[in-house]
Design a protein around this nucleic acid. Structure first.
Lengths: 189, 189
DNA sequence: TGCGATTAGTCAGAAAATTGACTATGGTGC
DNA sequence: GCACCATAGTCAATTTTCTGACTAATCGCA
């Protein structure tokens, strides 16, 4: 019962179409929320029906028309109400971690390959987040931005995402090297 | 299509009843999987129907009877097959992060309180994981255990969970202090 | 002696998420 | 000149999860 709040939050920094949201959701919200385009369209429709966002049609020449959505006052109020409700514990789901948990019963080479791949993906995300944060800060240093910047919310969550991915990369690398060492030891024994 | 593999993995370290799984799932699997008791019971039934786990009735005097489940050879094979499939990107969902992302539009005091609370929870988890890891290692140091221990899989994932929660605690504390500083600045201005 | 917690589950219904199409147009590369 | 990619969506069916209630026995504690 709270994709809606993620969508409202995403719309806080200006008008977006469903299509744009679908593109950007996995960037800004990445690392703490995820949704498929169909869900976003459906949620936008519901939010509009409930008066929490307002849509306006934009007619375009060279591309299909689109509908841009903005958060209404009612939407803002709903977001404030949501912020006061107790947060449910965070919820994670990771195939790769399940595989690692089963490491003792499973092919090590395959796991190592997947860990290496994941480390690379995490590394790319770290760089992406760094870029986004630099862009957001502009001239300001991090401390100044955190103290006086205009979008602390998104900045703080990017910071969290950056650290998460950085840690993820590190762990994947270490886990892979542990498994490699054990595989080597098995072979030479 | 993969709660089943999480359950199979959880059953790798011996027989468990549905009830036991429901209790322990949020400890060992915490930080990368979560499921309600009902889901676990349902999944165990399906796994048994598919021959991937075997159940045996244990008649008890003072408590209700229970069914203990073990992974079958077919179950092990399925787990190995799963380990070879490409992993889907990991999937996170966190209410509190959504609220922080909306920090600029929302009541700061409430957010700060929730961040403090979350930091405390994360701290407790760090200690829990430390305890579990010490117990697993026994006499051995971490490096030795990683090199020669019998359950590297679970140990590595505990390590990941520990780091995640530790980082989480740190970030919550920092985010709260950033928001506190800004709230203070607003007031004195 | 009775209240609540713990053990060990089951069932049904509602809500959310995923899978997999399908529509249409315009621009880009080969 | 044709295939593919990007824009901007929509629809239906299925699978997965979540909410919430319900059974039934025993143990500890006050």
């Amino acid at each position: 019962m709270a994709l809606r709040h993620a969508v409202l939050t995403a719309l806080l920094d200006g008008e977006h179409s469903g299509y744009q949201l679908a593109k950007s959701f996995d960037v800004g919200m990445a690392n703490f929320w995820h949704a498929l385009p169909q869900q976003l369209y459906a949620e936008l429709a519901k939010l509009e029906a409930d008066g929490l966002v307002a849509g306006r049609e934009v007619v375009q020449e060279a591309r299909p028309n689109k509908r841009l959505f903005t958060v209404t006052d009612a939407g803002l109020a709903e977001l404030r109400r949501f912020a006061r409700t107790p947060s449910k514990p965070s919820f994670i789901r990771d195939d790769l971690l399940v595989k690692v948990a089963a490491a003792d019963a499973v092919d090590a080479a395959e796991l190592i390959a997947q860990l290496d791949e994941r480390a690379a993906i995490a590394g790319a995300k770290v760089e992406l987040f760094d870029k986004l944060m630099r862009k957001m800060r502009g001239e300001l240093g991090e401390a100044e931005y955190l103290a006086h910047g205009t979008q602390v919310g998104p900045y703080l969550t990017l910071l969290r995402g950056r650290r998460f991915e950085s840690e993820n990369r590190e762990w994947c690398t270490e886990a892979a090297s542990v498994l490699r060492a054990r595989a080597g030891a098995d072979v030479t024994r």
